[in-house]
Amino acid sequence: MCLAVPGEVKTIYVANGTRMGVVSFGGVEKEICFAYLPDLQVGDYTIVHVGFAISRIDEVSAQKTLDTFAELGLLDEELEELRSGDWLSQANSASLRVGEHSGPTAAPAAMRGEIIE
């Protein structure tokens, strides 16, 4: 239901009695209301929805989640293998031969579900 994106707090000020500030979303800067996060500091990351910061992002937890993924994860060579299996990235990086790969026209293995008559 709710498109909310992470951004970095750049400035904090009070306008019309409300705690406001500027948040940068990967270089896109927008004025955001901080009324609900009085502890938010410049440099913190926050989740923003319709102009309001609703949650401070906890860096430690984020890293913990990423570490969990890494534990399930891959060796670098495997990653490299996956990338090079990609007919287009290969085509774009070196030779532009595209015919030799099965390419994305191959039916995805997991395509399934109810079919529309």
């Binding site: 498109l3 979303f25 270089g27 927008k30 990609d86 287009l88 994305p104």
Partner: peptide, 22 residues
């Protein structure tokens, strides 16, 4: 036409702006 999404060049700030507005 079948396209490879990863191959489409998009400036990172443009991508952020799109993410931000949905």
């Amino acid at each position: 036409i079948v396209i490879e999404e990863q191959a489409i060049p998009i400036d990172s700030t443009v991508r952020s702006a799109c993410d931000f507005l949905g």
